[in-house]
């Protein structure tokens, strides 16, 4: 424990303010979406990069600390780095924009989505990452997204064969049930003078 604390403070001192999350983006996402957002949108741990829990700096192995330091040097876009305290979205941001641009964007968080672009959809739920950022939903969880967008996307995705078969099955079942009702009416009304849906109370 003491060793880990030592590592933590060593790293924090080394990194200076770079070790902090960028709450500007979090605040912006929360403000435009009306949804509560925490650090887990881009980081591994929901409480941000500093701490002793899994996914935080205090828990990194020496190899991961090396990765972290090389990721910190990725100032230009397109560098193949993997930051162990960031999740897939955080790393995609770093790779697409580069650290320098991200630091600039902290002052204009409203431009992050445009700068990142609307093509990438990491979790494949049909809502692009940039939209998930603007809508305050989790860009790496396919089960989380703006409900309507998710619904229409999945409707298209499962239209064939799942929904087609299910609708066919239901239609067939209702057709059968309906005819069965008619059949019962016919066989049970046999002999009664007037056919019809209703009997009389006994």
């Amino acid at each position: 424990m003491a060793l880990r604390v030592a590592i933590l403070f060593g790293v924090a001192a080394l990194a200076g303010r770079g070790a902090h999350a960028y709450p500007e983006f979090q605040r912006y996402s929360q403000q435009v979406s009306g949804r509560f957002v925490n650090c887990a949108m881009c980081h591994v741990h929901p409480d941000g990069p500093i701490g002793l829990k899994p996914g935080q700096i205090g828990k990194l192995t020496p190899a991961e600390l090396g990765q972290l330091n090389s990721a910190r040097g990725a100032f230009l876009p397109g560098q193949d780095v993997m930051n162990p305290i960031l999740n897939e979205f955080g790393n995609a941001l770093l790779k697409k924009l580069g650290k320098k641009r991200i630091l600039e964007l902290r002052l204009q968080p409203d431009q992050l989505a445009d700068a990142y672009g609307y093509e990438s959809d990491i979790d494949g739920d049909g809502v692009p990452d940039a939209h998930e950022f603007l809508q305050g939903t989790d860009p790496v969880d396919p089960q989380n997204g703006a409900p309507w967008a998710l619904f229409t996307h999945n409707l298209r995705r499962y239209a064939f064969p799942h929904l087609f078969l299910l609708v066919t099955a239901t239609a067939l079942g209702l057709f059968g049930m309906n005819n069965l009702l008619k059949w019962f009416h016919q066989t049970m009304d046999k002999g009664s003078p007037e056919p019809g849906a209703t009997g009389t109370k006994h």
Binding site: H162, T168, G173, G176, M177, K182, W183, T187
Partner: peptide, 27 residues
């Protein structure tokens, strides 16, 4: 005629229910 009609209804009903049952069980 009534018997014929009744048989037709029963066949339609069985067709519908069997189809739905088959599709549902496959799913």
């Amino acid at each position: 005629v009534a018997a014929m009609e009744s048989r037709r209804l029963f066949l339609k009903a069985s067709f519908g229910l069997a189809g739905a049952g088959a599709l549902l069980s496959v799913g």
